Simulated scan of single mutants.
Amino acid sequence: MNESNAKLPNFIGDEVYDSYETAQVVILPIPYEVTTTYRKGCERGPAELLDASYQLEYYDDELRCEPCFDLGIFTHPAIADTRQHPDLSPEMMLQETSSTVKKLLDDNKFVIALGGEHAITTGMVQGFLDFYDEPFTVVQIDAHADLRQTFEGSEHNHACVMRRIMDLGLPSLPVAIRCLCKEEADLIAAKNIPVVWAWDIHQNPHWIEAAIANIATEKVFLTIDLDGIDPSLIGGVGTPEPGGLDWFGTLKFLRRLFQQKTVVGCDVMELAPIAGNVVSEYTAAKLVYKLIGYWHEKNFREQW
Rank of each mutant, 00 (worst) to 15 (best):
I73Q: 03
L63C: 06
F151T: 01
G116E: 01
E66T: 12
G123I: 02
V111P: 05
H118T: 07
Y59A: 07
H76N: 08
G123T: 04
A159W: 02
D107H: 15
L129D: 04
Q140G: 02
P46S: 07
H144N: 06
R39D: 01
G169M: 08
G153Y: 02
E43R: 11
R163K: 14
F131W: 15
V161M: 08
L147Y: 14
R83C: 04
C65M: 08
D142G: 05
A113W: 10
D142R: 10
E152K: 11
P135I: 01
A113E: 06
G127C: 05
G116D: 01
M162Y: 08
Q126W: 05
G116Q: 01
S172G: 05
D107N: 15
Q95N: 13
G41F: 02
L50I: 10
E66Q: 11
G127L: 04
L50Y: 08
C160E: 08
L104A: 07
R163T: 02
P171I: 00
T100E: 05
R163Q: 11
L114M: 11
F128W: 10
N157T: 13
P77V: 03
D142H: 09
I141H: 06
E57G: 09
M166T: 11
M92C: 09
S53N: 08
P171W: 07
D70E: 13
Y58S: 09
R83G: 10
P67D: 11
R148I: 10
M124K: 07
Q140D: 14
K40I: 11
C42F: 00
L168M: 09
H85T: 02
D146I: 05
R39E: 02
L50K: 09
N157D: 14
K40G: 14
R44N: 11
K109R: 15
I73A: 03
P67M: 10
I141P: 03
R148P: 09
E48R: 07
L88I: 08
T82N: 02
R163D: 07
T97L: 15
G116Y: 00
T82D: 02
H85P: 00
L105A: 07
L94I: 06
P86I: 00
S154R: 12
H158I: 00
I73L: 02
M162N: 14
Q55P: 05
T121M: 01
